[in-house]
């Protein structure tokens, strides 16, 4: 066991972990931040995407000890200070960008990372960026639409509802 300390959603946290403890396990099991989900074991589904020092990473493919001293952001820290949904979360609700909700935390975290580096992405850029986030429910239509909307782009021309 080794001690690890990091900042998660703005709060300093620490814990004793093994070398093999994944960041996702530390978040889910030690910190009870269960919004970070595990949907595969080959680092492809993206349900576990979190931010480490501002960059999207797969929390299931990084050891907790590698996040020593890092600023970690998870889905639980995304809402506005007053608890209301942030612009991306709100756009996902407004445009029905989620169904079962399991891939959603990773989608929102990836969308946030995308908009940070590319504030007005095209449809094609969004679709390419989401290569590492698999959704089985939505057919991606409303996820892409929600991200376009969250970036302030007009989505009224995209099919109804």
């Amino acid at each position: 066991m080794a001690k690890v300390t990091m900042t998660v959603n703005g709060k300093s946290v620490s814990g004793d972990v093994e070398g093999r403890t994944l960041l996702s396990a530390f978040l889910r099991e030690d910190l009870n931040l269960t919004g970070t989900h595990i949907g595969c074991d080959t680092s492809q589904c993206g349900a576990c995407v979190v931010h480490v020092d501002g960059e999207a990473v797969k929390a299931c493919t990084m050891f907790a000890l590698e996040a020593e001293g890092a600023e970690v952001g998870t889905i639980e820290g995304q809402a506005n200070a007053d608890g209301s949904l942030n612009a991306i979360q709100q756009a996902f609700q407004d445009h029905h960008g989620l169904q079962c909700g399991f891939c959603t935390p990773g989608m929102v975290m990836s969308a946030a990372a995308l908009l940070k580096e590319n504030p007005k992405p095209s449809e094609a850029e969004i679709r390419h960026y989401l290569e590492g986030n698999i959704c089985r429910c939505t057919g991606y239509h409303n996820i892409v639409k929600a991200i376009l909307a969250a970036s302030g782009q007009d989505v009224s021309a995209i099919a109804a509802e």
């Binding site: 680092s43 480490v52 999207a56 797969k58 990084m62 986030n133």
Partner: peptide
């Protein structure tokens, strides 16, 4: 290569 999260690591 991979996807954005993979490329970040």
């Amino acid at each position: 290569i991979g996807d954005p999260a993979v490329r970040n690591r």
